[in-house]
Amino acid sequence: MKTIEIDDELYQYIAGQTQKIGESASEILRRLLLGDDTKPALATPEEAVSTPATPISSSIFDLINKQDLPAESSVVGRFLFILSALARAHKKQFTKVLEIKGRNRLYFGRSAEELSEAGSSTNPKQIPNTEFWVITNSNTTRKKMMLTETAIKLGYSEQDAERIRDLL
């Protein structure tokens, strides 16, 4: 087994091509580059995702491999990675994140300026491969709460929202 380094944008693309839970980067690349047309295996009962109350277009669990998260060394990196995967899975619904706010500050916005104007020390970062921005200077507990609220807004069950939160 060889190790290669790839940039974040390419990694996001590869992760976005996942067709089954637990599919490795090697399997994805083999399928994309070599045309390996073997059909993806069905998820095992342990991997099965519970059905949410509101139907969703796709699932973050189809896009994120839990073993890929350690590649993001910081909490902020994992936070942005998870939000990016949610945005990919729910392109049409992702604008709902703009409704998630704190008592006195915005958590999500369409620009860094919008978030900076709504509070001090927000440290806004763009969610990769989206037009959305998020504040990143909050503590890990607040980031987990933001992920949970985002998942609920996108139609995930409470149980799946907790699973998403726990990816951080």
Rank of each mutant, 00 (worst) to 15 (best):
D36Y: 09
T51G: 00
I28V: 15
V49H: 03
E47Y: 02
A48M: 06
L34M: 12
V49F: 06
L42W: 02
K39W: 04
R30A: 09
E46V: 00
V49G: 01
E23P: 13
A43F: 01
P45M: 03
A41K: 12
A41G: 00
R30S: 12
P45W: 05
I21G: 11
L33H: 02
I21K: 15
E46A: 08
T38M: 10
K39M: 09
V49Q: 09
S50M: 04
V49C: 02
P45G: 03
E27Y: 04
L32M: 14
A25V: 15
L29H: 08
L42R: 10
A43D: 14
G35M: 09
R30Y: 06
L32N: 04
S26D: 15
T44V: 03
A48H: 02
D37G: 03
E23Q: 15
L32Y: 05
D36Q: 08
E46I: 01
D36H: 10
S24E: 11
T44W: 08
G35R: 09
E47V: 00
S24N: 09
L29V: 07
I28F: 11
V49I: 12
L34V: 01
G35Y: 12
R31H: 08
P45L: 06
E27S: 14
P45F: 06
A25T: 14
D37C: 04
S50H: 01
R30P: 00
E27R: 11
S24K: 11
S24R: 11
E46C: 00
T51N: 03
K39L: 13
R30G: 04
S50N: 04
K39N: 04
E23N: 14
E27D: 15
A48P: 00
E23A: 12
E23V: 09
P40Y: 13
A25F: 13
K20P: 03
T38C: 06
L32S: 05
I21E: 14
E46F: 03
P45H: 03
R30N: 13
T44N: 09
E23W: 13
L33A: 09
E27T: 04
I21C: 12
L33K: 04
P40K: 12
K39T: 02
G22E: 13
A41S: 08
E23T: 09
G35H: 10
T51P: 00
S26Q: 15
S26I: 07
E27P: 04
R31Q: 08
L42E: 13
P45N: 02
R30W: 05
E23D: 14
E46D: 07
A25E: 15
T44C: 03
A48F: 01
S24V: 07
P40T: 07
E27V: 01
E46R: 08
G35W: 13
P40L: 11
D37I: 04
P45Q: 04
A43V: 01
T51V: 05
L33R: 04
T38H: 11
A43E: 13
L33P: 01
G22I: 09
D37Q: 10
V49N: 02
L33Y: 08
I21W: 10
S24A: 09
A41T: 03
A48Q: 08
I21N: 14
S24P: 06
D37T: 08
